[in-house]
Design a protein around this nucleic acid. Structure first.
Lengths: 157, 157
DNA sequence: AGCAGCTACTTGAGCGCTCAACAACTCGGC
DNA sequence: GCCGAGTTGTTGAGCGCTCAAGTAGCTGCT
């Protein structure tokens, strides 16, 4: 049990600015999608992943890993998307435990309709606010962090 | 109605890395607090704000603005914190519409108990992963973004 | 072959957040 | 004074997420 390494004033203000920025950014993006397309951002991400895949289908576990999301969260989300007819489940041919999430034509159409507004929202909220050097740093920092956190998660279960 | 300004490949990968990093980071911090202290990160932030205030009391609206959070969300959150005895409501003496959220001694104690573990989690998840130059850039970028988004929000309601 | 332990996914309860509607109050103009 | 518009905060329904528990199928060891 060692002494707590408290945050320095600079670290505190960085952390607080980070929290504010992140909350405002994700809230803005999420609110735009909900308002204009009736789907939360998490669902949009699922549809994007599926549409980026050759046959528009992915194993649940692969999808969950790619989105850094729990199996439970994905399962609930796919259930909702299925109700709307945007995704359908299929049995995995090679593993009877497995399920495939398949993007339907309706789902693809919903994604296509939502994409322009969403891209504008991301651009207006994020990229328009930063200069190119800041964008480069943000990308590098995010990648570093994502790698760091993903490897930590793997170590601790 | 102009053409959609789609994201460039670099912008796309920056955005995706950002989403991954931030989901992992906030999930890690939130899970640590829930597990070790029984409170979500949003509640921890409320307690911190109150404890940073001279008499440990703030108007609801001031608190909501400072945390960049909706009035509704804060109202629900304070209701929960009140049930636990960590916060108590008082009428505002100068404005009969107003309410003060006041941190109780129990709330202060809960915060004091949660703080070391939380700080370690933030340090381990964020600051340990970045070098000092990255931390400086992250702080500056976050501040730029927070200002940009807050001013946008004010303009559009 | 059979069984223990792992992996893949689902389910249900509980909780926090969003959105819209609402009640109470303040303030500026007349 | 009074009325209408704006502000402050609350409430309830609905939804998405978390956590823990459960089902089903795979895999490796003996």
């Amino acid at each position: 049990m060692s002494e707590t390494r408290w945050l320095s004033p600079d670290e505190q203000s960085t952390w607080r600015a980070y929290l504010n920025a992140h909350r405002l950014l994700l809230d803005a993006v999420d609110a735009q999608l909900r308002r204009d397309s009736g789907m939360p951002h998490a669902y949009y991400e699922i549809l994007v992943r599926l549409s980026d895949t050759p046959d528009r289908a992915l194993r649940m576990s692969v999808l969950a890993d790619g989105l850094r999301v729990s199996a439970s969260r994905l399962s609930h989300a796919i259930a909702r998307l299925e109700e709307r007819g945007w995704v359908r489940r299929e049995d995995c041919p090679t593993d009877k435990r497995g399920q495939l999430a398949v993007l339907t034509d309706e789902g693809f159409a919903a994604l296509a309709a939502a994409a322009p507004g969403h891209v504008e929202a991301v651009r207006g909220a994020l990229f328009d606010a930063l200069d190119p050097e800041q964008v480069r740093w943000l990308g590098a920092i995010s990648q570093t962090l994502a790698d760091h956190l993903a490897s930590r998660e793997r170590r601790t279960g």
